[in-house]
Design a protein around this nucleic acid. Structure first.
Lengths: 116, 116
DNA sequence: CCTGAATATCTACTTGTGTGTATATACACA
DNA sequence: TGTGTATATACACACAAGTAGATATTCAGG
């Protein structure tokens, strides 16, 4: 049972413009750091840093290829994200019922005089 | 009808611990600000601010209910995120050969972190 | 070994963003 | 209309995080 719990790091890693661009670039296939930097008009140190964060989040991984390191996407965290999203799917259908429940529940305890 | 393009704001909104907790709380149904704050041990102003960011990202919406505002999730951005994730689905299959290579290579150096 | 190419790390700087606190606004009800 | 409740906004502050630039590291080839 691979704990497919959604890690906040994954969202944090994706929630940065350049990192998101990197991920979307790598969707078309693995690429070495230099090429990533060039295609996205980024400086090499920043590119390495972003890749490090993406790697620590489990979104990418590097394969040594001679002197270069070819980065590519890893599926696991994307799947976790998918699983997490799935947990919301039921909400869209059952929301109104739940809202109803909540509202009546709220009415039920209107006799709790509590100030703050 | 909706372009369903992934907005960075959505990821940014989700990539904050307390906002993620809010979203997950709202998965169980709409709730007024005060209750969200109480359940998550947040102060009310911060809660309102987080909800504002979530709302601007299109993730939640408030319904007036007497003096209170009941916030609930909205499906659209979650679906955009799902669509975006789907665009990666094909990557895992098309990369299967190389991933396979990678996995066996990884097994090879289970206790040799500096192998090669 | 030594050199050059590719990538990673380090330091200083700056800006964005979450937090705390005080205050303003909206609404229900007497 | 005045009051209490619920929520939103304003402001000052501190810290996380991205950037630029310089330097260190790794590797292939002569």
């Amino acid at each position: 049972m691979s704990g497919a719990a959604l890690e906040l790091d994954v969202l944090v890693a994706l929630a940065e413009p350049n990192r998101l661009r990197i991920v979307e670039l790598l969707r078309d296939g693995g690429r070495p750091v230099g090429e990533i930097a060039e295609r996205l008009s980024l400086l090499q140190p920043q590119t390495s840093r972003h890749l490090r964060i993406l790697a620590e989040a489990g979104l990418v991984r590097a394969e040594r290829q001679a002197q270069s390191r070819v980065y590519h996407l890893l599926p696991e965290q994307f799947r976790s994200l998918e699983t997490w999203l799935d947990s919301f799917a039921q909400v869209w259908t059952s929301r109104f019922d739940r809202l109803d429940n909540y509202l009546s529940e709220l009415e039920t305890r209107t006799d709790a005089p509590d100030a703050r």
